[in-house]
């Protein structure tokens, strides 16, 4: 299967959720409670498929977890907190645009996204360098029992700070139709869906780190940790040297 076929499938799934949510927002006006419930369920599904695409911190989380073997509970903590920060960041942009600046959220996103993206890239690069140093320092530790780092909260902030365009579009749409409350709840459920996808990507990285082949071979254990740290460095470098162009959609 070609990657573009996969991309097409994801795009169609995203489109279907997007269209269904928009339709149910109009149905709220009919006075029934059911459309609001359906929006929440659909928003969760939209979050899952939306975060299966690029961004949303999955590559960063995978690199970080390879470099820093973590407990399963920490993987979920990182995944869901990233999604929450990603959503909160989007809601701040949306609410500022709609109520303080009186412009559409997409217009504000066009202006704030490129600098935030680059800032995030610079900080990810710093985090990567620190991880490389940290992994090198701990090269004699040859088992899974590497002490848990509080740096995971830094990862949460770095991966989540760039606002999610999907949440921006959804919440701004809700506001313009006069359904801000449902829009906020839907954004929250969308973040739960995204959190699930990000956590699953993290679990995959964690299971690689915990696999027998790695655990029983000290050299492999260290090499995989180093590879993870290097991935974070490269990701930061890529973001920093490939600024995203300003565009409205």
């Amino acid at each position: 299967m070609m990657l573009s076929t996969l991309a097409n499938t994801f795009a169609q799934a995203n489109h279907s959720f997007n269209t269904a949510i928009a339709e149910h927002f109009h149905a709220i006006d009919s006075g029934h409670f059911q459309p609001a419930l359906l929006i929440i369920v659909l928003a969760f599904g939209y979050g899952v498929v939306h975060a299966l695409g690029p961004g949303h911190g999955k590559a960063l989380v995978a690199g970080y977890l390879l470099a820093n073997p973590s407990k399963r509970s920490h993987v979920f903590q990182i995944g869901f907190l990233i999604a929450l920060v990603h959503t909160l960041s989007a809601l701040v942009v949306t609410l500022c645009a709609a109520y303080l600046m009186n412009v559409s959220a997409n217009r504000l996103f066009r202006d704030v996204n490129p600098p935030l993206f680059q800032l995030s890239g610079g900080l990810i690069l710093l985090l990567g360098c620190w991880l490389v140093y940290s992994v090198f320092k701990e090269r004699r530790i040859a088992s899974e029992s590497v002490a848990a780092h509080t740096s995971r909260f830094g990862v949460v902030m770095l991966a989540g700070v760039v606002p999610c365009p999907g949440v921006i579009t959804l919440s701004f749409f809700a506001i313009t139709l006069g359904h801000m409350g449902i829009g906020m709840v839907a954004a929250f459920f969308m973040s739960l869906g995204m959190g699930l996808s990000i956590s699953l990507a993290g679990l995959l990285a964690q299971s690689v780190q915990a696999s027998k082949a790695i655990v029983t071979q000290p050299k492999w254990f260290w090499a995989i940790r180093f590879l993870g740290a290097l991935c974070v460095v490269l990701l930061g470098l890529w973001f920093l040297t490939h600024p995203i162009p300003q565009r409205a959609f």
Partner: peptide, 23 residues
């Protein structure tokens, strides 16, 4: 080894973008 391959595939998939606008 299969887990490593799956992980690499997921990372590769993360490179392509996701649309949020449909035309």
């Amino acid at each position: 080894m299969s887990k490593i391959c799956v992980c690499l595939l997921v990372c590769a998939c993360s490179v392509f973008a996701h649309p949020h606008t449909f035309i």
